[in-house]
Design a protein around this nucleic acid. Structure first.
Lengths: 106, 106
DNA sequence: TAAATAGTTAACTATTGTGTTAATTGATTA
DNA sequence: TAATCAATTAACACAATAGTTAACTATTTA
């Protein structure tokens, strides 16, 4: 199950902070590392945890490796978990779907 | 920071499963333990992690301890994190607020 | 091609998390 | 009040995290 890896990835403050940084713009591994007290290798491993979880994507451009956020994966996992846990929200969602099917694009 | 404890609590499959069980109804510690392969003490500790994070509430009634979900805390944390990470959603939220202030109850 | 820069991987250490069984606390009942 | 049932706490073992420094790979540039 991939939700497993995602929640695991989110269980670390530095990793959540990395995601927040990446929410604004793509950044190189070095850019990210410079925002923390930690060593570069430590950041590199955090990035690899995030990438394995499918939360970020990396791309090498010349000397640099750019990281960017994979919003869909994160948002989907968190909202679907929220709905699973919170039947009220789930009921609202069903209600919303029903309305949509009765009266398209409103 | 309490989001810390919440994400930490969510980083465990058994604990997420417990939350899912509790989303349907309140349960005693024993009810919950019986749904897992694990020993009762192990479940008891998972429950205490969830309670410390503010995700569940426990109440002793006679011989039993009943657990129930604290939905607000969970939903608030997850959605606010989602908005933090996903500026698009955040922009939508702002937009939505603006509309609401211009044209109440629509 | 040698040196420098960016980043990751390797090897290691310390700490934390998660499970076990045994002992303990609290409440009920024979 | 002794026995039983529900649940937690204690003590321990083992695996996994998360950090460190050192070594390595890839790319650029003098």
């Amino acid at each position: 199950m991939t939700a497993d890896r995602i929640f695991e990835a989110l269980a670390s403050q530095p990793r959540r902070k990395i995601l927040a940084y990446l929410s604004a713009q793509e950044l190189t591994a070095g850019d990210i590392a410079s925002r923390f007290e930690m060593s570069a290798p430590a950041i590199s491993r955090h990035l690899s945890v995030l990438e394995t979880a499918g939360l970020v994507h990396s791309e090498r451009r010349g000397q640099f490796v750019f990281y960017r956020l994979n919003k869909d994966n994160l948002v989907n996992t968190l909202t679907s978990f929220t709905f699973e846990i919170c039947p009220v929200a789930s009921a609202l969602k069903r209600e919303s779907r029903k309305r949509a099917s009765l009266k398209p694009s409103t």
